[in-house]
Write a protein that binds this DNA or RNA. Structure first.
Length: 167
DNA sequence: ACCCCGATCGTA
DNA sequence: ACGATCGGGGTT
């Protein structure tokens, strides 16, 4: 098994978002296949939190690739992102769906649902998954067909096909 | 100090 | 298709 390194996450966000489909998350005793992602790219992406510039919340998006960006949404749910690209360029990949590879073999479709199940919250914001022992990604063999669609739940930037789903 | 709204979810 | 939900981000 080969752990995904800094260089992988520094690649262009669309490439990372696509290549993350079928990769495996190792999270404590969980193993999970990534089945759905979305890309948020730069300050010119109107759907990105970074569109309004560098703030306390969006700071991780401007930081080093391979760190997590975890934020609270709708007052209830958390969303898990992995920061991409070079330092000071705000971009990240939202993890929208995973399939658990060990019991209870759940299909967790939805960014809020998967964070709720894995108990991922603000404590994980800014975690460096290139070096962490309990949270990292590994290469896994897969031959998914990847479908590209508009992103979910946004009102702007709907013209971009920046959501990727394993068929 | 406060207003406002959202990268959602579950039910209809 | 739609409404519940409410913490906290951004601005005063």
């Amino acid at each position: 098994m080969q752990r995904l390194n800094r260089e992988f996450f520094q690649l262009p966000t669309l490439q990372v978002a696509k290549e993350l489909i079928g990769k495996t998350i190792i999270y404590y005793n969980h193993q999970a296949l990534i089945t759905e992602t979305e890309a948020y790219i730069g300050q010119d992406d109107p759907a990105s939190h970074a569109a309004r510039g560098l703030t306390n919340r969006t700071k991780p998006m401007f930081g080093q690739a391979g760190h997590l960006y975890v934020y609270l949404i709708y007052g209830i749910y958390y969303c898990l992102n992995i920061v991409t690209e070079e330092l000071n360029f705000p971009a990240a990949v939202l993890i929208r769906g995973i399939r658990l590879l060990n019991e209870p073999y759940l299909n967790l479709n939805g960014p809020g649902k998967l964070c709720r199940f894995l108990q991922i919250d603000k404590r994980y914001n800014n975690l460096d998954i290139v070096n962490d022992q309990n949270f990292y990604l590994i290469n896994s063999i897969n031959n998914f067909t990847i479908e590209a669609t508009p992103r979910i739940g946004i009102k702007v930037g709907v013209d971009k096909l920046w959501r990727f789903v394993a068929k």
